[in-house]
Each structure stands twice: as C-alpha cells, then as structure tokens.
Design a protein around this nucleic acid. Structure first.
Length: 446
RNA sequence: GUGGAUAUAGCUCAGUUGGUUAGAGCGCCGGUUUGUGGCACCGGAGGUCGGGGGUUCAAAUCCCCUUAUCCACCCCA
C-alpha cells in the first residue's frame, strides 16, 4: 500500500471530453427532447456499430472525410474504421436489411461519431449526432418533413431564434450545366459555400483558381448566389437562370413544392430561408440541402444540416433506396447554448432531498424514500446524520427542489416540513397517505 | 494537417530585470450550542507552477521537445 509507484497523469485525448454531471444532465435532457420529437413523426430508433469495415465507410463523403477518418487494423488483421457520421452506416444498414425493414423506412439514430480534425469551440473529434432519415421514397413530402422535424427540434430545445437555410443541389447542377462548369462542380460549390464568410471577390478568385472558371462564369455564378429576399421572388429570378436545363428546372420545381409544404404545415416564414449559396460539403447530396443557424451565434456554424441523397445505398445494393434526412449536431449546439448562457445547470437528478436527521430513524427514512419513489417522486436520501444546516447547504448547491425535513418531533407527529429550497418557504405536510405526500411534493417541485 | 496565442490551487487570475518555505479572490472542508442552507467571523486542506529535458550556484520566470486548449486557414455538426 505504501509502496511508491509513479502516478500516471490523468488526461484526455485531443478533441475528446469528459462530461461532469452539470454538463451531462442537460445533455441527456437534450437527447430526450430529440427522441420525443423524432417519435412524434413516427421515426423509429436503430443502432449500429461504432466500428465498420474500412471499405464500408471510405470514399463516401469525399476526400476530406477519408483523411479525417480514424482507421486502423484490428488484432485480427481486418482494416477497420470508426464511423465518421451516421448516414453512411445507415446506407449500409438499409442495404443489408432492406428485406426485413420494408419501405418507406423512417429511423432516428443518436450516437457518437469520430473525426480526426483539428479542434475548436464546438468542433471535437468525438461528438454526438442526432440523425433522422426517411429511406425508400423520393416524395417531396419527406423533404418537407425533414425541415419540419429540424424546426420542431430546435423549437423544443429552446435555443432562441434560428433559421433553416434550404437549397437544392439540382438547381446548382442546372446552373453549372448551363455555364459548362459541370466538370468542376465540386470546386465551384466548395468556393460558393464560403460566400457569406469571405465575400464575392474572394469566392470568384477561388473559382478561377481551383475550377478554372472564366470571369464571365464567375460573374454568372455570383449573380445567381446573390439572389436574395422573398422566397417567391428568388424562385422567379431563378427560373430563367436554369431554363433549358432539365435538372435545373426540376430543382426549382422541387423548391417550390418544398416551401409550399413547409408553409402549409404552419412554420413561420422567418424560420426558413431559400439560400442558393449553401451547397454543403458532403459529396453525396443530390437534391434538397439543409443548414441551420442560430440567430444569436451564427459564427459557430451549422447546428443541424442534411439533405437528400438518392444514390447513397447504391454502393451496397442494386435496389433503389433513395433517402432524405438531417442531423442535429448535439455537441456543437450544446457548446453554443453554454456560450449563450442558455443552459440550466443542476448537479442532481432528484427533485426531493431527504435529510438524515434523527440518527435512530435510518430505516424509517429509507422506507419513506422507497415509498415516495414508488409513487414516482425522485428522492435523494443523505447517507450520514450530519447537521441539518450542512445538509441543506448540500441540497441547495446540488439544485434539489424540495427538502423534506423530518426530525424526532415530526416522526412522532406523523408530519414533515416540505421546504422549497429556492424560496425557503416551509409547508407542513402529513407523511401519510404516501400518495398524497407524493402529490404535494410534486406540486412544490414544479 | 498548416500558422499563431495560451498552459500557475476545483474556478478566475497575480507572480516584478531568474534568488529565501509560490500568492489573492471565489469555491471546498471544519468550527462559531448536532433542529434549518445561500450572510458574517475563525480555522483548515489543496499546487513537484501541463509533462519531459537543458542552461545556471539558483527557474513558475531563459532554451529545446512534447501534450492539451483557444484563434485563423481548411473542412464541417
């Protein structure tokens, strides 16, 4: 025991974090909210392994994601990789289980993903995504629902004002087709994605450099990207720019239907915006694309995004499995809310605190706590008979709502003092019947 | 991955041109009649100055390496 050995320095890997109760409690609450919203649309939960065969994951999201993927050989000599997102594993999943699932298939999946990139606020190497997707239909109704879910989610999470930016890859394709830039679409879109951040001149410069675009082509792309204002007006302005391109015209039509559907479902026009400049980095999107920004902290980046990918599962199956979905970046959103002071931090999960006061009554306390839990009240019983003041201080620090103070006198009388910690108000309550006591405690905890 | 900044008690920070046992505030623990918390007073614990190496009689202070965090680029949730 007294032998001295060198201590190992406790530390965590770059981009990986511990969650203390004050962070883990609100984080779990966010996940519960997300589950509730997903389920309200009929999405069902699934889970998949963190580790996949390397060939399943690589080459799906473009060069950049391959570079950032954690890859290695397992002890059985298999080339493996940790999932980079939840969408590619979904594609594998539906290709593998299509027969048992049936379509359309709606699933949600909450879990960690790993990306070996450099860290910053809201950018980690291990972070949790809340994904929801609809597979097996090309109906625009599912594109609409995807926007609605994202909307309901952020609304339920009480993040303040936000805007869901919508666009359609087909419109971009149509434009590039008209401009003879289809061959370099990836480069053009990557440059275009930065418009809001670096401005038109630099975007043009990058397009000239990486995509070999001419001045005229740059001007046309920027004119297109500069379209702003009322959704209907932008859609009208868009039409002539893609006229003659079959994909482009279809893209504009899809956008029309998308906005009509979202409006029909009652979403405020201020929360959705047609933003023709968003292109999304991931290579697999083929239709609608989504990006969500917080009004109070846009610089942290998109807190939720996604899109339609009609070809993704085709890498694993000959079956036609188009899909559309999006992902809420839980940790980035969490980081934003923390930064904005919008997180409620409590270090306890129990509403009611039961001080251990009368030393000889331990079993009575234990029995009462058990009865209350059976009535659905969360109760923490302090394990040591310390001074009442110290116990109340503990309860106050942790954030319990109500302290149920019972000393010798109360045990004799069959009553207790229910003390609301926040206001210091005491209420006399009867210990029996337990159901009534539980109801009273619930009222006081609210 | 590239460039820059930072790294001292649980937290926020001080530590003068390298020099005796490294400080403060807050927090934490205990006490001020073992029946009532956020105030006050008293006392206490807690740091090999991110880690490793080097220069020096002497380093938290200078040099090198390393790890992490933040910022920009890149990319994205």
């Amino acid at each position: 025991m007294s032998e001295k050995r060198p201590l190992i320095q406790p530390r965590t890997l770059k981009g990986f974090r511990d969650y203390l109760p004050t962070a883990a409690i609100p984080r779990e609450a966010m996940m519960e909210t997300a589950r509730r919203v997903f389920r309200s649309y009929g999405f069902a939960p699934i889970d998949t392994p963190a580790l996949e065969y390397e060939e399943i994951l690589t080459g799906k999201g473009g060069e950049e994601s391959d570079k950032q993927m954690f890859r290695f050989e397992d002890s059985g000599g298999r080339r493996v990789a940790m999932r980079f997102d939840l969408t590619v594993p979904l594609a594998r999943f539906v290709a593998q289980h299509a027969g048992e699932l049936g379509t359309p298939f709606k699933r949600y999946h909450i879990g960690p993903v790993w990306r070996g990139e450099n860290t910053q606020r809201g950018r980690y190497r291990e972070f949790t995504q809340c994904d929801f997707d609809t597979v097996g239909t090309t109906s625009i109704a599912s594109d609409v629902e995807t926007a609605l879910v994202m909307h309901d989610l952020l609304d339920a999470l009480e993040v303040g004002e936000f805007t869901i930016h919508l666009n359609n890859r087909k419109v971009l394709s149509g434009l590039l087709e008209r401009l003879d830039l289809s061959e370099r679409s990836a480069e053009v879109l990557r440059a275009l994605d930065k418009l809001a951040k670096i401005g038109p001149e630099k975007v043009a410069a990058e397009m000239r450099e990486t995509a070999g675009a001419s001045d005229d082509q740059c001007a046309r792309v920027l004119e297109f990207a500069g379209l702003e204002g009322d959704t209907d007006a932008v859609l009208r302005a868009l039409a002539p720019l893609v006229a003659g391109s079959e994909v482009g015209e279809r893209g504009v039509q899809e956008l029309r239907e998308l906005f009509a559907g979202v409006a029909a479902a009652g979403v405020s026009g201020s929360r959705v915006r047609l933003d023709v400049a968003i292109a999304r980095g991931l290579d697999y999107y083929t239709g609608t694309v989504y990006e969500t920004f917080l009004a109070e902290l846009p610089e942290i980046g998109s807190v939720g995004s996604g899109g339609r990918y009609d070809e993704l599962a085709s890498l694993y199956t000959k079956q036609d499995l188009p899909g559309v979905g999006a992902s809420l970046g839980l940790d980035r959103l969490f980081s934003a809310l923390e930064h904005l002071g919008k997180l409620e931090t409590r270090a306890t999960t129990a509403d009611v605190f039961l001080p251990f006061f009368s030393q000889d009554r331990r079993d009575d306390y234990l029995r009462l706590a058990a009865l209350l839990r059976r009535e659905g009240v969360s109760v923490e019983f302090y394990p040591e008979p310390r001074k009442l003041g110290a116990q109340l201080k503990y309860a106050d620090k942790r954030g319990h709502r109500v302290a149920l103070v019972i000393g010798d006198d109360e045990w004799e009388a069959g009553t207790a003092q229910a003390k609301v910690l926040a206001t210091k108000d005491s209420h006399d309550v009867a210990l029996e019947p337990t159901a009534d006591l539980a109801r009273r405690l619930r009222e006081l905890s609210a």
